[in-house]
Amino acid sequence: MTIDIRPDDLTSAEMADLIAIHAQTMLASSPPESCHFLPIDSLRQPSVSVWSMWEDGALIGCGALKDLGNGEGEIKSMHTRAHLRGRGIGRLMLEHILGVARARGYTGLWLETGSMDAFIPARRLYESYGFSYCGPFGDYAEDPNSVFMCLQM
């Protein structure tokens, strides 16, 4: 598998469509008040780096890293097209994000994901890279539909 991961400026219709699909997927699995995905305009903030994943000219996934300050970051918008899941695409994006976080000298990474069964594959992926469960961070609050994870680097 030859996959190209590149910085994305979120201006293409393809990427806008993928971000919309990500939002729809989250809303289909979680109550709206428990969905913490960033809309495309929030992903365009200077504190957020976004990458797109391409294979044979097709957009197949994305991921983002939000700078939280104080040498810490939050993983956001990890998404692989549904028909391509199980191929290790999410793993490649996570490894890319971890590499960027290390290069930036981050000491910790955080994330929020769902507590429902639909999110088991995501939680297992993060666990396999050493993320552990923790309480809410930043502006998040305790929520039975959310799981919080962190990785000390």
Score class of each variant (00 low, 15 high):
1 M>L: 02
6 R>K: 14
7 P>D: 12
9 D>S: 15
11 T>W: 02
13 A>K: 13
14 E>M: 00
15 M>A: 00
20 A>Q: 07
21 I>P: 00
29 S>E: 14
31 P>S: 01
33 E>N: 12
33 E>P: 01
34 S>D: 01
34 S>G: 05
36 H>G: 03
40 I>C: 07
40 I>M: 09
44 R>A: 15
44 R>N: 14
45 Q>F: 08
45 Q>D: 11
50 V>C: 15
52 S>A: 15
53 M>N: 05
54 W>K: 04
60 I>V: 15
60 I>K: 00
67 D>L: 10
67 D>S: 12
70 N>M: 02
80 T>C: 12
81 R>K: 13
82 A>P: 06
82 A>L: 10
84 L>P: 01
84 L>D: 01
85 R>Q: 15
85 R>Y: 06
87 R>G: 02
88 G>A: 04
90 G>I: 10
90 G>Y: 06
91 R>G: 09
92 L>A: 10
96 H>M: 09
98 L>R: 07
98 L>K: 05
99 G>K: 04
100 V>L: 13
102 R>H: 13
105 G>A: 08
106 Y>L: 14
107 T>K: 07
108 G>D: 13
109 L>A: 05
109 L>R: 00
110 W>S: 10
111 L>W: 03
112 E>V: 02
113 T>Q: 02
114 G>F: 01
115 S>L: 13
115 S>P: 10
116 M>F: 06
119 F>I: 12
123 R>Q: 14
124 R>D: 14
125 L>D: 04
126 Y>Q: 06
126 Y>C: 08
127 E>K: 06
127 E>D: 13
127 E>P: 06
128 S>E: 09
130 G>C: 09
130 G>F: 08
131 F>I: 05
132 S>L: 11
134 C>L: 06
134 C>G: 06
134 C>R: 07
136 P>E: 11
137 F>D: 06
137 F>M: 06
141 A>Y: 05
147 V>W: 05
147 V>T: 09
148 F>H: 01
149 M>L: 12
149 M>V: 08
150 C>R: 13
151 L>E: 08
